[in-house]
Nucleic acid binder design. Structure first.
Ligand SMILES: [Mn+2]
Ligand SMILES: [Mn+2]
Ligand SMILES: [Zn+2]
Ligand SMILES: [Zn+2]
Lengths: 132, 132
DNA sequence: ACACCTTTTTAGAATCATTATAAACTACTA
DNA sequence: TAGTAGTTTATAATGATTCTAAAAAGGTGT
């Protein structure tokens, strides 16, 4: 029910698979970071249906394009996504290989002084790597 | 000649391949960003020897570990490296898929207010995505 | 409900960057 | 010069992601 309109408004048909993925992604108390494979595992645990991996890829990319997910720039062999789409930054714990949110207030205001002719700033993302 | 000592001091044997890669990477006026495949092309053009792709991977990773190269966190199917190892940040031109250096002075000082128990900040990297 | 068309799902294949393997080769040291 | 550890190399393996094309499902109008 909850997500049908959201999908329709985005021009995405509210299929069973997409609604189930919405539940897993957006129906939790806290936002979280994930790779496609982690999401696949989470879906397996939370629902009794099987959703093909291709559909998970398709859906995550569709949601990202609509702005319901963010991709996090990080050096990893897997792509990391974030259900927290607010303007925020990240710690990356190198040992644990885990991302931790840094709210915008946790980082002083960032002022980009350099300008590039004919280009606009789309986003400013800070990655703070942590070691022991 | 120039790089033999540098390699020896790092505990890396100054092999012909490593010295040739040093020439391509560090003997240019300006620093630059590259993927492994771009470096492979550059090597092919600048030297008359063939260096196997595996050696290029090995060498780039060895140099990165020694701090002679930096890896740039970015969402791409290929890993980006930087011969500019100074503390600096990047524009990423989404259309051109090109990185542009942002010197530290081009970005206001960044103050991370949040602390994580038992962890130290290793690096702070800013990625500014550009669109038209 | 039915027909029709479009979008979506799916299993499986393909792609491609990266890493592993293991044999040949090379740099250093005694 | 022999011995040893480090390095290079061709090639295979891995694994995340994308592609394909056929089947299934959604949406719309009747
Ligand atoms: Mn995407
Ligand atoms: Mn590396
Ligand atoms: Zn986040
Ligand atoms: Zn740079």
């Amino acid at each position: 029910m909850k997500y049908i309109e959201k999908l329709r408004n985005s021009g995405l048909r509210p299929t069973k698979q997409r609604l189930q993925i919405c539940e897993v992604l957006f129906n939790s108390e806290k936002t979280f970071h994930f790779t496609i494979n982690e999401l696949d595992q989470k879906i397996k645990k939370q629902i009794n249906d099987k959703i093909s991996l291709a559909t998970i890829y398709n859906t995550v990319h569709a949601f990202e394009k609509k702005g319901y997910l963010k991709q996090i720039p990080i050096n990893s062999n897997q792509t990391y996504f974030d259900t927290n789409i607010s303007d925020h930054h990240h710690f990356y714990d190198l040992k644990e290989e885990k991302l931790i949110d840094l709210e915008n207030a946790d980082v002083g205001p960032i002022n980009i002084l350099k300008k590039i002719n004919g280009k606009r700033i789309k986003s400013v993302e800070v990655l703070v790597k942590l070691e022991d």
